[in-house]
């Protein structure tokens, strides 16, 4: 059984303009296995922040079932949810640190809620601050820290009660690129060293690319595509997924880009898609050369996701149409070919 299992979950909010309720989450089913780093990507308003809050029941579901660690959360009262939440850590885009408390007391807070002994709190907080590399900042207040440091405190705080799940709500969206990488590296360690299952909400494909093992793409309250990150990245099916993948993967040129390419380059323009295990680039280029096709690489790139390579290369081909048709038919048997202009 999955660690987190959502079945036909719907979350409706009253419509501010009257009329039908607004569906923030619309019939979503999702399984998150122990040890996963599950990325959920979508534009703002897609419902991903609401979705992640269903997992620790900060938002109650309107309909459907949410099972975490074998326990059904739908229908539980706030009091019954409190022990459940001790087993689920959460970090936030704006960090949400307690400004009136020191770094040390921020991390100690959930342990106090859990009723841990003084000795245990002392040991655990020191251990976690060591883990996130902020032992020297224990007595500082949050306003004295940089954004990246704040999020590291947030991570330490979220891990205090040794939860099995960590929910990350746009955890790096307020950080600069370099700090983002730092925080992502730390989250990776949380997953690999402590075996914490993570749900990572983001609108940045780079985040998914660097830490997620699985990904779900959300659009208008629905999950429109989900699966292994490599699968979704190398072969996105849904339009929204393709747009997101397009932000990090220079793939098939958009119509606007095609027009530019068309203007600049002569010949027929085709996009070849490579996936790990498919035909190698070398054999494709060899075939083109042997057929006497003059070719030029004009767009695209090769990406590495979880140690597997894939990519889209757009070429301008110059030879007679018959020659090109012949060689493309040959290549198409091993890899996907799209004529784009």
């Amino acid at each position: 059984m999955a660690l987190v299992s959502l079945r036909n979950v719907t979350k409706a909010y009253p419509n501010p303009n009257g009329g039908d309720p607004v569906l923030a989450i619309n019939d979503v089913s999702l399984d998150i296995e122990a040890g996963d780093v599950y990325g959920i990507i979508g534009y703002s308003g897609a419902g991903k922040s609401t979705l992640v809050r269903l997992i620790n029941a900060l938002e109650p579901v309107t309909d459907g079932s949410v099972v975490v660690n074998g326990q059904e959360l739908a229908g539980l009262g706030e009091k019954q949810l409190r022990p459940v939440r001790l087993g689920i850590g959460m970090i936030f885009q704006q960090f949400n640190l307690f400004n009136a408390k020191t770094v040390w007391n921020n991390v100690a807070y959930p342990l106090r809620v859990a009723g841990a002994s003084k000795e245990k709190i002392q040991a655990r907080v020191d251990e976690l601050l060591e883990f996130v590399g902020l032992a020297d900042k224990a007595k500082n207040f949050p306003e004295q820290l940089s954004g990246g440091q704040k999020q590291r405190v947030g991570i330490a705080r979220a891990l205090a009660t040794a939860p099995s799940i960590l929910l990350c709500d746009e955890a790096t969206s307020a950080l600069d690129p370099e700090t983002t990488q730092e925080v992502l590296a730390l989250l990776k360690r949380v997953n690999s060293e402590f075996g914490v299952t993570m749900v990572v909400i983001t609108h940045e494909m780079e985040v998914i690319q660097s830490i997620a093992t699985k990904v779900a793409v959300m659009d208008q309250g629905r999950i429109v595509e989900s699966g292994d990150v490599f699968e979704v990245f190398s072969n996105p099916q849904n339009g929204s997924s393709q747009t997101f993948v397009g932000t990090v993967v220079k793939g098939v040129p958009s119509p606007a880009e095609r027009a530019v390419l068309r203007e600049r380059h002569e010949g027929r323009i085709v996009t070849l898609s490579f996936r790990d295990g498919d035909a190698s680039q070398a054999s494709v280029f060899l075939k083109l050369a042997q057929a006497g096709v003059e070719f030029e690489l004009i767009y695209g790139g090769i990406n590495d996701i979880q140690g597997k390579a894939f990519g889209h290369l757009t070429l301008a081909l110059r030879a007679s149409d018959a020659v090109i048709d012949g060689v493309l038919a040959d290549i198409a048997q091993a890899t996907s070919v799209t004529e784009v202009a």
Binding site: N56, E78, L81, P83
Partner: peptide, 29 residues
């Protein structure tokens, strides 16, 4: 007081009285 810190308290399993006493009042002191 930022609704975010209140939410953080809820996410950590703190009840309303504890949130008022240990988060909201200290943050607004």
């Amino acid at each position: 007081v930022s609704p975010g810190v209140v939410e953080a308290g809820r996410a950590m399993g703190a009840g309303p009285v504890r949130i008022l006493r240990t988060i909201v009042i200290p943050e607004a002191l």
